[in-house]
Design a protein around this nucleic acid. Structure first.
Lengths: 210, 210
DNA sequence: TTTTCTTTGTGACAAATATCACTGTACATT
DNA sequence: AATGTACAGTGATATTTGTCACAAAGAAAA
């Protein structure tokens, strides 16, 4: 792993910290679709996303998966940080949406760096805040919005990361939003009528200007 | 403020840290019903709850308030910690449900103690994890459960903190759950028929055994 | 090319929840 | 005691979302 690569991805850290990251971190490569973290799995390291896009889900008792947020390159899995620090188990399910590279850092360094590097402390705190904010936005969506608005903001989230042309089926979307395919199909039809989207087979193209 | 009182409420901290808390913290007393933190308010200090019960809400653009979780005595407002560390504004609304005492700690100490006291680091991390977990449970409730189950778990949350006899109106509950009074009244009637609850005016009595 | 499978479209219907309109009832105030 | 007000009960109806059944359209496989 290259130190300069880390510097670009995580631009605010102290120089010595990059060296430690290179020295103590382990690279993990995962393929698109792979599960990175299962609910109930014990967490022994903190994960930083170096490449790719990861989706986090909450699972109910019947195994239904509810999408909560994305992690991009340069993001840390806050939950892995919180859990790691207490040797606890995961409360979420993480899946790689694209091929991804993950830097795994044993939990003892998490704690050590926290007092040693101010920049690490700042990074962790910022990371928490961002994730917390996203959770709150997820709550907003399901608490205050109807399915049409939720679908719209869902698509816009994907588009902002993957571009206008999304390779996704109606069923996929329905699963992420804990809805049903028919509902999503109908709502997409309405959006198509408004000119927001072009529906293809296995894909949609977002044409709405924000 | 008494050091021993802090020791009982926050049992795991280092001795010097209690002294610092006494020295640098400010006590704030608030009355039941008071707003402690508004959405958009800049956060300049970390808040620890010494006495009382605080409710956290998420607000939508029309000012509708959606209850997310409680803070009890001995809890820290994690959001105030995250926000404080970045001089940012609040994303939630906090209200005192009962008269409450709050220990307010200027943000510079938050950072300082983080590297100085391992116990503080642990406390903050645990605090985050607990709050994160509660947020996830809130998401579970609205994503996976119908109103009857949500109402039940809502009542049980209140009961666990305030006892079986809750002084609350149907409208209050409806507001917290972003539902309507009629729906709550009807569901409570059904629960009463099942012997889970006794409905009084301005109050309900939870009689369900768990 | 024919067959099969996956994805999408759509009408009909069911369920959950929200809204409206109105009634009754307990409590406080005068 | 009369009155006003907040709270609670309830039927009727609307809206949103979910479910079922089946058709149509593409893509893939035989």
């Amino acid at each position: 792993m290259d130190k300069n690569f880390l510097k670009i991805l995580f631009p605010v850290l102290e120089d010595d910290l990059y060296d430690e990251m290179v020295q103590h971190g382990t690279i993990k490569k995962v393929k698109a679709g792979d599960t990175i973290l299962k609910v109930g799995q014990t967490i022994r390291s903190t994960m930083l996303i170096l490449e790719g896009l990861v989706k986090l889900y909450r699972e109910d008792d019947q195994g239904k998966e509810f999408f909560i947020y994305h992690l991009d390159a340069g993001d840390a899995c806050s939950l892995s940080m919180v859990c790691a620090a207490k040797h606890e188990t995961s409360e979420v399910l993480a899946k790689a949406l694209t091929d991804a590279t993950i830097l795994s850092i044993p939990l003892e360094f998490m704690e050590q760096w926290m007092s040693k590097y101010k920049s690490w402390y700042q990074f962790v705190i910022t990371s928490y805040r961002n994730r917390f904010e996203e959770l709150l936005q997820t709550i907003d969506a399901i608490a205050f919005s109807n399915m049409d608005e939720r679908l719209e903001s869902y698509i816009e989230k994907q588009v902002s990361r993957l571009g206008n042309h999304l390779k996704i089926t109606h069923q996929d979307i329905a699963t992420d939003l804990n809805s049903s395919r028919e509902v999503i199909s109908r709502l997409l039809k309405k959006m198509e009528a408004k000119g927001w989207v072009v529906i293809h087979r296995n894909a949609i193209e977002w044409t709405k200007k924000h």
